[in-house]
Design a protein around this nucleic acid. Structure first.
Lengths: 109, 109
DNA sequence: ACCTTAATTCAAGAATCGTTGAAATAAAAG
DNA sequence: CTTTTATTTCAACGATTCTTGAATTAAGGT
């Protein structure tokens, strides 16, 4: 992941509505969720949800595909993983403290 | 790490100058760098560097301590690690693809 | 064709963020 | 106590982002 992509991704994750959407899509699993369901579950108007989904898609953190009239959004674990790798390896030079936090959930983080 | 802290941290990392500062401080090692050196190395005016350092400090991503007239800034690997853990465990529920990206630098991320 | 549902786009205004340069604080030295 | 150095704070302005509601595109059913 290049730096500019990381900057856009960080920006995308820095908003409460968008972070909530990411979590919803993580919960939703591999089939994803229709935009309308995302809006409802996030407590946002359709246009607001669409705006934020577009931001996440622009950052590569979610993908969209249309099935008939409904557009399904899915989270991109690959891109989230790439962002993690960017922080760990590019930013932190693989620093052991940061590395340790990514091990088991039992780590002291 | 709670959600709000994570939001602030993501916002802090979403700016090119601030990300550059984080990298400088990672390079600088445990002694950190004086604010003036950060400004010079980042190619920013003192007030601009101070503004961005304050943003990073507010997010807990850097710490400051004064030694005589100069203020040394250090990166907080703990907070960066906590942010990684937040993404991995809170947001992604420990999803294996994300987990894999945090392993060795040889991972396919 | 017409209607309905799903979602996006647009425009306007509000809110937040970033930059600049000048002024203020902090600490030490002469 | 004045000066110098290090850094922050402040105010103004420009730029970006967010929200809202109305209009628009997209797709399918009647």
């Amino acid at each position: 992941m290049d730096e500019n992509t990381a900057l856009v991704a960080f920006g995308a994750l820095s908003n409460a509505t968008r972070l909530k959407i990411v979590r919803l899509l993580v919960e939703a699993g591999p089939d994803g969720l229709p935009a309308g369901d995302v809006a409802k579950a996030a407590g946002a108007s359709p246009s607001r949800a669409s705006f934020h989904l577009a931001g996440l898609a622009n950052a590569g953190l979610v993908t969209a595909d249309r099935q008939a009239r409904t557009i399904f959004y899915r989270v991109s674990f690959e891109q989230l993983g790439a962002l993690m790798a960017f922080v760990l390896n590019d930013c932190c030079k693989g620093h052991p403290i940061v590395q340790a936090c990514c091990g088991q959930a039992t780590a002291s983080c």
